[in-house]
Design a binder for these strands. Structure first.
Lengths: 191, 191, 191, 191
DNA sequence: AATGAATGAGCCTTCATTCAT
DNA sequence: CATGAATGAAGGCTCATTCAT
């Protein structure tokens, strides 16, 4: 006799919701306790059994990549719908926010993308190209700035995220870092 | 009757040597296998029993802090013996090298220093002040550069170290990052 | 509105076909991966959902017993349609082949048949009696051979199957084993 | 404060005793519950922690091989100290007893010896050669019997062990099996 | 004071079984 | 009646830590 308060099997229809709940729980748990957080804690946070986590994301890395893919899709949507020369600043601002929020597992993803065929890195480079070219043409950013520099900026912000416990301090430090590299991009962060 | 071929207790005199061996082993193991490397692997690498590791460093973090303290002492020695305006570049160069070599546990140390009374961060700030002031007076670095910015630069380089597997690529990326922030300091890294 | 390309429920008519597919899949999977193969693998091999497996065979053992029952039915058909003194050799040959093919789960079935009321063992004994009597009367087999000895021979061949990875080697070893016990039966295996 | 009734660390001096206890527990647990018995059950039976089992026997198979090696050493000791023509019967009798007692993991060992370089099989063959030659010379055993046949006999007895739950019945069946193959050897089992 | 084996908690992972659709 | 996702118990394995010698 199952406990009425404890639904033991809500059926296959909840699969998409479970997947979303696992990604959200992954964001929370990775941010709060680092990439090495017990997978059981993520499953518990998502309100599902451990087996469900394994069904949707066979490895810890698969979950991290799914979170990143969502991030990249948001960036691509921004890049696709904005044509102003200021778009690059908006993208950098979003990248900074995502990086600070995902500090715990940026490293794992970068490492994996170097060793596997995950295309995330290339997608980021691709979506940055046109906006950066427009900003350069408009004279908004320093003339020697490259797409690789923007990606490097993300690595730098990642380091800042890891070394600042307080999110507010991390955000301020990241803003200062971007400002040191380029005043136009830095101003966008602070806004 | 101890077996002559199996020295099991080499006496109190070897304690300092054991401590040094553990620090050296910690550097190697953290660099090679990350901060989470088994403590038994560090003890084995150092050629001592696990109990000795506990005697000298009660926790994993204590060992990491000891490694960092050695790093800071080297920086202080440099700062104390160099009076040229170019000294800040030498210090930044050393900091970059130390940071790239210690990528695996910078985060742990920074986190601990925020939560405990470890004075490492303040010592770094203190040793940077005079050299940076001299460089500013000589007009070598950008006039708005602060000591906090140099510390921030270390955080940024840390992020670069974590996201570049290949040490050569990491070094090149770090050089570019410093160059983006300040041409004078960047030139020193590349040298 | 069910998707026409995804038949999710093919109706009651397919139940017998599903049962047969599960038995065939069970033979393949037990042989390939041992008696402990995941039940989900058997269901997948059979092309049905896991629920169907449970509907037809409530336990792993029930499936194994069904496979054995098919084997016994084939033996009974042979015994019922052959009246020659040589029939015992044909039956032993078939038993050897079945045993080698089912090595992974003979043990489970024999154990279960001793503890439950599964009549498989008795059916084998029953079907062997008349053919063995005819062979004894004809002087083909050693005069002290009993039906229990033939059943014992199956146990012995089972051990050979488990200890020989290569099916060809197992078959040769089984032939030698039968030959050691009775030249007439052994000759039938080798043929 | 450790519970006085629960010695938590009896020190390194108990290592050899632990190893012996693990082998004895392995014999009991494998015999009682099969090769797949939880390793934690073996450790509990031996009165040690799970880590100790892993320290002494890195894998389940390593423990099984250690048990088998003890068996082989006993056989070698018998072969080395007996020179009578009847020795082969004594060895077969011991082999039968060992095989029936170790039924659950004979298969694992055979599998391992095919895949690794475990020399156990060759040691058995080697120790049987001289005693069998003496028995053949004395006319005690059938003249066509080979060492490989004796090894095959072990496989056959293994199958009997697996298919007979009752040890007494298994022993009787094994005796009958050996008798069917060779009257002289069979008589030794029954004795 | 050093050694290194023992301990055992906790994590990852796999399935057997259930059940909503 | 079939599907296949959800569940969660159970086992393998790994260390951090203790402590007898």
């Amino acid at each position: 006799m199952p406990d009425a308060d404890t639904p033991r099997n809500r059926g296959p229809a909840v699969a998409p919701a479970n997947r979303a709940a696992l990604i959200a729980a992954g964001r929370r748990q990775f941010a709060a306790h680092g990439y090495g957080v017990p997978l059981s804690a993520i499953a518990r946070d998502a309100g599902v059994g451990q087996g469900v986590l394994y069904r949707h994301f066979g490895t810890r890395l698969a979950l991290a990549l799914a979170i990143f893919t969502e991030n990249i899709e948001a960036l691509e949507a921004t890049a696709a719908t904005h044509r102003e020369p200021e778009t690059i600043a908006l993208l950098v601002r979003t990248l900074v926010e995502q990086t600070l929020a995902s500090a715990a597992f940026v490293e794992a993803v970068v490492r994996a993308s170097a060793e596997s065929d995950w295309a995330g890195g290339r997608r980021v480079v691709a979506l940055l190209e046109a906006p950066l070219a427009r900003a350069l043409a408009a004279g908004h950013v320093r003339p020697d700035l490259t797409v690789d520099d923007v990606v490097l900026l993300v690595s730098m912000v990642h380091g800042i995220g890891l070394t600042h416990r307080d999110p507010t301090a991390a955000r301020a430090a990241a803003a200062r870092a971007v400002l040191l590299v380029d005043p136009f991009l830095g101003a966008a962060i602070e806004g």
